[in-house]
């Protein structure tokens, strides 16, 4: 967050400071409406982190896509596809966990690369290309499963159900470690965050992602392989979807072809609330972390105060607008 130190400009104009401002406001709200002290218990925060992790993993991949000037609407569907693939391979076909994980990552990445190729090579608009992938991947997930959820109950040829054991990986990912203090999915999320940070801030490819988002033509004329970079960002997003899909399957003990509907919008909202510009070229993975936490806490605070889902959704909508307006007004 080196922006904080940029000389000659008030610190309030730095994107990270503004994003942090929104998060702090939400935390203050939590301290105020603490539901008789529930907000001050670590368990609340741990559960919030667990609930937000799957979205956070999607948001990691989404950040790269958005910085490169694109958008990925297919993340929810690819999540579902990965989740049913993982369940099918491990629960029904009894694949060993490492192979199943690799296969899922392959499926997710293939979907992402496909969207990327449509954008970069066929010159389709990202919105259209990923919309097509969103529909296609959802269909594929339903076709693979025959429209059924993939769970421990395996349908036999005579129409009855037999129950099989859940592979240990499911239970482990759904568990908490470090004396019950943090969920494994949260650690998976943090790992994704770290890897994306390395990609965006430490690798040459990351610099190119920013350059392509900032000014595609100038980047191309400077020798940046624009098409390849675009494909890579969608590929990474696909990988993140696969990871999120597997986590989702483990948390639900099943692979649901209907899972993840609408998740793409949550992931985009998290990235944008952090302050990453939809115009591309600006933003960072840490801003996304702040966005993820802001939405996560908001949801948690409303739920511990027993605000009904109807009001929760309305309030979330209002607060998303407020946060974005806040960032705009000081620009």
């Amino acid at each position: 967050m080196k922006d904080l130190k940029t000389p000659g400009r008030p610190w309030t104009s730095s994107p990270s400071a503004r994003a942090l401002g929104a998060l702090v406001a939400v935390l203050l709200l939590g301290a105020l409406f603490n539901a008789e002290g529930a907000f001050f218990k670590w368990g609340t925060h741990r559960d919030m982190l667990r609930a937000v992790s799957v979205f956070g993993i999607l948001a990691c991949g989404m950040t790269g896509v958005i910085i490169s000037g694109g958008i990925d609407l297919s993340v929810g569907s690819i999540l579902a596809l990965a989740s049913v693939t993982f369940s099918l391979l491990t629960i029904h076909w009894h694949w060993a966990a490492p192979w199943a994980v690799l296969a899922c990552l392959g499926v997710g990445m293939a979907c992402g690369l496909c969207s990327g190729a449509l954008v970069a090579k066929a010159k389709m608009q990202p919105f259209i290309a990923t919309l097509a992938m969103m529909v296609f991947a959802r269909g594929l997930a339903k076709w693979v499963t025959g429209g059924e959820k993939i769970s421990q109950a395996v349908k036999q040829s005579d129409g009855t159900f037999a129950y099989v054991d859940l592979p240990p990986l499911f239970k482990w990912i759904d568990s908490r470690i470090l004396y019950d203090n943090i969920s494994v999915v949260t650690l998976v999320f943090l790992t994704c965050l770290l890897l994306c940070w390395v990609l965006l801030n430490k690798l040459r490819a990351g610099r190119y992602i920013y350059a392509v988002g900032g000014n595609e033509e100038a980047a191309r004329l400077s020798g940046v392989p624009v098409g390849l970079i675009r494909i890579v960002t969608y590929g990474v997003s696909g990988l993140c979807c696969a990871v999120a899909g597997m986590c989702q399957a483990c948390q639900e003990y099943q692979g649901d072809p209907e899972a993840g509907a609408g998740y793409e919008l949550s992931a985009i909202a998290m990235v944008v609330i952090g302050g990453t510009s939809l115009n591309g070229g600006k933003g960072s993975i840490w801003l996304t972390l702040i966005g993820v936490l802001t939405i996560g806490y908001l949801d948690k605070i409303l739920s511990i105060n027993a605000v009904g889902e109807d009001k929760r959704l309305m309030l979330t909508g209002i607060i998303v607008v407020a946060a974005v307006l806040l960032q705009k007004s000081r620009r």
Partner: peptide, 13 residues
């Protein structure tokens, strides 16, 4: 503006 610089990046970049 359109083909030379990347406005969102700093001088070094």
């Amino acid at each position: 503006k359109t083909t030379g610089l990347i406005a969102s990046m700093n001088i070094i970049q």
